[in-house]
């Protein structure tokens, strides 16, 4: 009896991730097939054979995604996945940790040219070290050292012109 209860709680009252994923993908696939393809893929008047059309492969892939998403949706409803250890592993993460990670990503994505490769590298690396509560001061020196070394490696050894940033120009 006890065993049955445990198994029941493993399934009951939980949002089914496969069904949610399937439903989201069904919506996205429908938008793709019925809106994006007709609106954003031009077909030249020269195209006689539909298999030669620029829309053929995107539509084929779109229908495949739609069909598989429907299967996923139905499959998820019929056989809900169990609660996994991985879910517990991801629960209860300090907010500051992933906020700093996002901020570091934003520095690289939005300020890379403005700040330059070295400065953005130093700021982002510093943020990520901070996100993990690294305590040794010497480790933070690495946040200064590595962006300089890696930038010089790219610029002088690989001939990749990384941006210097507005501060230094």
């Amino acid at each position: 009896m006890k065993q049955t209860d445990i198994n029941h709680s493993e399934y009951h009252g939980r949002v089914n991730p496969n069904s949610m994923l399937g439903a989201a993908l069904v919506i996205l696939a429908c938008i793709f097939i019925f809106y994006l393809v007709p609106q954003y893929i031009e077909v030249s008047g020269m195209v006689k054979n539909p298999m030669m059309s620029p829309r053929f492969l995107p539509l084929l892939a779109g229908w495949m995604v739609l069909l598989c998403s429907l299967i996923l949706l139905v499959n998820g409803l019929l056989w809900p996945p169990k609660h996994t250890e991985a879910e517990a592993f991801h629960a209860g993460i300090p907010k500051l940790r992933w906020v700093l990670m996002l901020a570091a990503g934003a520095v690289y994505t939005m300020l890379f040219e403005q700040l330059g490769a070295i400065t953005s590298g130093v700021i982002a690396t510093f943020m990520l070290f901070l996100a993990h509560h690294l305590r040794h001061f010497s480790i933070y020196l690495l946040a200064l050292l590595f962006p300089v070394v890696v930038s010089l490696l790219f610029i002088y050894l690989l001939n990749v012109p990384l941006p210097a940033g507005m501060l230094w120009e």
Partner: peptide, 16 residues
């Protein structure tokens, strides 16, 4: 320590 440096390589590599 390793992953922030890996991210830096990722960004520089993608930019290159």
């Amino acid at each position: 320590i390793l992953l922030p440096i890996v991210l830096m390589f990722c960004v520089y590599g993608a930019y290159a």
